[in-house]
């Protein structure tokens, strides 16, 4: 899902960088002191997750975990993902410096969107089952949206949006299910051992989302 150096045009790179800067600024403003460690831990999970390949389906793709980060952090997912992507570019040579903004946008925006979906589903279906369903949707949707946004970034290359979206979505179908399950288990685990964390993001959300 990481776009490599030299694929995109300067216009797309610039737009990505600007959007990523805006997203990170919003994320940092909404970031609360108590969330900081969570942001770091999830950043670490995202950083390491890219090394875990899921050898199911047509192509073996790796975990993205942006849905999980988004569901647990909301807008704070943006800085969390940005840091992890920066380190992946530096240490693993995944992606690259100039494409950092675009990659942060595709995964960060998808993560934030999956947080909104997670909250909406939670509100519709209260209770433990609803929580699980919401978390699964959030986790799976994060990957799907990241694939669509990556294809969108590639739309202006000679590959084209349709071909890229088709390839990315089919390659990441198993990943969506796996990440849906990971998010589901993680969220229900946190709901058991430390429910304040989930409640915090949920109560915090309505005022923030309307600002």
């Amino acid at each position: 899902m990481h776009i490599a150096e030299g694929v995109l045009s300067p216009a797309v790179l610039g737009a990505g960088a600007a959007l990523a800067a805006a997203g990170t600024a919003i994320g940092l403003r909404k970031l609360e002191y108590d969330q900081l460690i969570g942001v770091g831990v999830l950043s670490a999970a995202f950083f390491v997750g890219s090394l875990v390949h899921v050898p199911v389906g047509l192509a073996s793709a790796h975990l993205v975990l942006n849905g999980l980060v988004g569901v647990l952090l909301g807008w704070a997912a943006f800085p969390s993902i940005l840091v992890a992507l920066l380190l992946q570019a530096l240490l693993f040579q995944f992606g690259g410096f100039t494409v950092l903004g675009v990659n942060a946008c595709t995964m960060g925006l998808a993560g934030v969107a999956s947080w909104y979906v997670y909250r909406a589903v939670r509100r519709l279906l209260p209770g433990a089952a609803g929580l699980r369903a919401a978390a699964f949707c959030g986790g799976a949707l994060g990957v799907a949206l990241a694939a669509v946004l990556t294809a969108l970034a590639l739309a202006f290359t000679d590959e084209g949006f349709k071909a890229a979206a088709g390839l990315l979505l089919t390659a990441h179908l198993p990943i969506m299910i796996v990440e849906g399950l990971i998010t589901m288990f993680t969220v229900s685990f946190i709901a058991r051992v430390r429910p304040e964390m989930l409640r915090m993001t949920r109560n915090d959300a309505p005022e923030n989302s309307r600002s």
Binding site: L36, G40, S43, A44, L51, L91, F92
Partner: peptide
């Protein structure tokens, strides 16, 4: 590919950034 050193180094960086943030 990424080596164990890269992975541990990256995790260390994240810890450091969180520490500075705190």
């Amino acid at each position: 590919g990424p080596s164990l050193r890269d992975v541990i180094g990256g995790l260390g960086w994240i810890m450091g950034i969180v520490g500075a943030g705190l």
